[in-house]
């Protein structure tokens, strides 16, 4: 199965051109492009969290050796072209409908590993119904959720996840919660649903946090392989371009404002709670409800 192609590699020509004399083309590089990533330049802005998370997802797919059975669903948003960045089968869903498409693929091909990758505008705005219902149905899919508190692709409009008083293109005086309400905390919201096996919120502002994020993403894939149930990883992310900051300042703003509002941590993990599946955990939670305890014979 696929292995990350570490070792001595020759840099692709475009990299030789760009890196020039700093790194010789025949130098030994310890960390190379994961096999499941294609050899293209992405459309992400420099310093964007999407690039990091794409890479983490790819490393997890490589390490789990599942490229050949993985089907990814790209969202509408800055990661819409993800189907060009990945070597596994990919579908581009209509805006917000990735969980519905993932549901279809997974139900028809349960042996596949199916993941949806979605921004906050996609997952928590236009696709809220699909998100909540795929989760509560307990679809056995993996969802990677990039929460950068803004509509990145369309130029920085306010998202349901934009913070109170956050200035965006459509909230030039700051998000006024008395008029447009409060941000949605997706990890907390979904953790109350019985269909959900695992929800964790991570970020990518430091080396340690990136490694934590990778661990969470890998677990979300492993859960699917093990049939545990619906797993979602929320990545608190930056959009330096539309926040109007350098990547470093953006991460500083994230630490100061995003993380207090969107605390990192595990919001639900049925395996850590001692259950084999989300269904087992749901049964236990409803232990005082006789009708919910009835065994289904078929």
């Amino acid at each position: 199965m696929a292995k990350p192609n570490a070792g001595t590699i020759t840099l692709p020509e475009y990299q030789q051109e760009r890196i020039g004399s700093q790194i010789a083309a025949d130098e030994t590089i310890k960390s190379a492009r994961p096999h499941v990533l294609t050899d293209v330049v992405t459309n992400y802005c420099p310093g964007c969290t999407h690039g990091i998370v794409n890479r983490l997802v790819a490393e997890c797919i490589d390490e789990l050796g599942i490229e050949g059975k993985t089907v990814g669903i790209a969202p509408v948003g800055c990661s819409v072209m993800m189907y060009n960045f990945f070597n596994c089968d990919m579908i581009e869903a209509a805006h917000g409908r990735a969980p519905a498409v993932a549901t279809g693929v997974k139900r028809v091909h349960p042996e596949n590993v199916v993941f949806a990758y979605q921004g906050d505008g996609d997952l928590a705005s236009i696709g809220t119904a699909e998100t909540v219902h795929a989760a509560t149905r307990g679809e056995k899919i993996t969802v990677i959720f990039i929460n950068n508190a803004i509509y990145g692709m369309t130029g920085g409009q306010m998202a349901p996840t934009s913070l109170p008083n956050q200035v965006t293109q459509t909230s030039p005086y700051g998000r006024d919660v008395s008029k447009v309400g409060y941000p949605v905390r997706i990890a907390e919201l979904l953790s109350t649903l019985d269909g959900v096996a695992y929800v964790e919120r991570v970020t990518c502002d430091s080396r340690k946090h990136i490694m934590d994020a990778k661990k969470a993403i890998k677990k979300a894939f492993q859960n699917q392989i093990d049939g545990v149930g619906y797993s979602l990883v929320e990545v608190v992310a930056t959009c330096p371009t539309n926040w109007g900051m350098t990547p470093q300042d953006a991460f500083q703003w994230l630490r100061e404002n995003m993380l207090p509002y969107y605390p990192l941590g595990v919001y639900k993990d049925v395996v850590a709670d001692g259950f084999a599946t989300a269904a087992e955990a749901a049964l236990e939670r409803a232990k005082d409800c006789p009708i919910a305890q009835q065994k289904k014979e078929d």
Binding site: M1, A2, E67, G68, K69, T70, V71, A74, V80, M81, Y83, N84, F86, N87, C88, D89, M90, I91, E92, A94, V105, V108, H109, E111, N112
Partner: peptide, 17 residues
């Protein structure tokens, strides 16, 4: 169909963009 490349073919993409 996007049902997994099984590492036997180039990856399939279904899109409308």
């Amino acid at each position: 169909a996007t049902s997994g490349s099984k590492m036997e073919r180039k990856h399939n993409v279904i899109n409308s963009l």
